[in-house]
Design a protein around this nucleic acid. Structure first.
Lengths: 188, 188
DNA sequence: CAATTTCGTTTACATATGTTAAGAAATGAA
DNA sequence: TTCATTTCTTAACATATGTAAACGAAATTG
């Protein structure tokens, strides 16, 4: 639980009693490589802390093409956040790129803590704000940078990750084909 | 204040006393067409409710090229949200596309209410969540849809707006040049 | 270790979009 | 209303990226 607690406290300090109430909701789960943690179409009910391993979030269009949206490395919160918030079916998929250890809780159980534990709601607020800021960064990058610049940014944001996952996952994250990524890599 | 109150209550119900404390922080301001409400490089300190008018948020790269990020129509909250949250300089600019009436408050004053008014913090949480969901939608659209599809989505999301603003603003929002938008429009 | 599959690169060609420039149309100012 | 400015469209050409296919390298599996 230690990395999880540190991660949470990095957002805002949480009183011991509230923290304990929150931690009690999380149970460890082991996932194997390539296993899906979430599948689009269903409604998300759980969210998790990624304690060990590597995951990806991706969209899928009607032709079955995949579009990587984000990579998760520890420490991180993983889950179909939009689906949890809006209570509508998930649009994204979450898949393990390696074996993973997660701590999992039911989102509604967390929300139920808010009235008695305002610091937990504050934690959620901070996390939502942080998610928003990250998303805005990526939006800006998609709009302002070309694929070659986005590749450089990717390497900065996920140092070393390029060696741990197939090139086609990176290409998908960059919004280009593996062919084009190969061309960009060949240039320098 | 009525549209503002309705807008806030649409996120979560707020007790009379907390609502009043919040409303007291907001002062009406009039802005004229083309006026900047926020300029990149400075730190944002205020946020506002757009009561009347039309605004745009846009990025600017080092060559001075502009990239529209979002259009705001009433009712909406306008502000450099990322800058307020992270307390770092703004990356975006906010500019009036028409004369505007806004209600403006200092963000820190709002945050200062949270300890005594948990429902105000809840409101902020809900708004942050909502912003995140909207941003994720736009990210998905940028990644999965081509410019022509994004144009159709734009027309659905901002009905009628195409007639109120120059085409080049729409092109910028879609991530293409006015030339390309013109071609897309000519096709059907 | 050998066989099979997966992955990355390259090539040739197609397409969407960018760039520049010109002119037409619309808008705003005098 | 007239003139000047801004906006929109179109054309010609350039470029980034997509598609499809082939091939060799790397990884996986039996």
């Amino acid at each position: 639980m230690q990395p999880f607690v540190s991660y949470l406290q990095s957002f805002t300090s949480i009183p011991e009693q509230s923290l304990q109430a929150l931690l009690d909701l999380f149970k460890p789960v082991h996932l194997v490589k390539n296993e899906y943690y979430a599948t689009h179409g269903k409604r998300a009910v759980k969210l998790a802390f990624l304690d060990k391993g590597l995951m990806r979030a991706f969209y899928e269009n009607s032709e079955g093409e995949e579009f990587n949206k984000l990579f998760f490395r520890t420490p991180a919160i993983v889950g179909a956040y939009s689906s949890l918030i809006t209570k509508t079916p998930m649009i994204i998929n979450l898949q393990c790129l390696t074996d993973c250890e997660i701590l999992e809780a039911t989102f509604e159980d967390i929300v139920a803590l808010y009235d008695d534990h305002p610091r937990i709601e504050r934690l959620n607020r901070k996390i939502a704000e942080d998610f928003f800021v990250e998303k805005e960064k990526r939006e800006m990058s998609l709009v302002m940078n070309d694929a070659s610049e986005r590749y450089e940014l990717f390497k900065k944001e996920f140092p070393g990750l390029e060696n741990d996952i197939p090139q086609y996952h990176i290409a998908s994250y960059l919004g280009i084909t593996p062919t084009q990524l190969s061309r960009i890599r060949a240039k320098r």
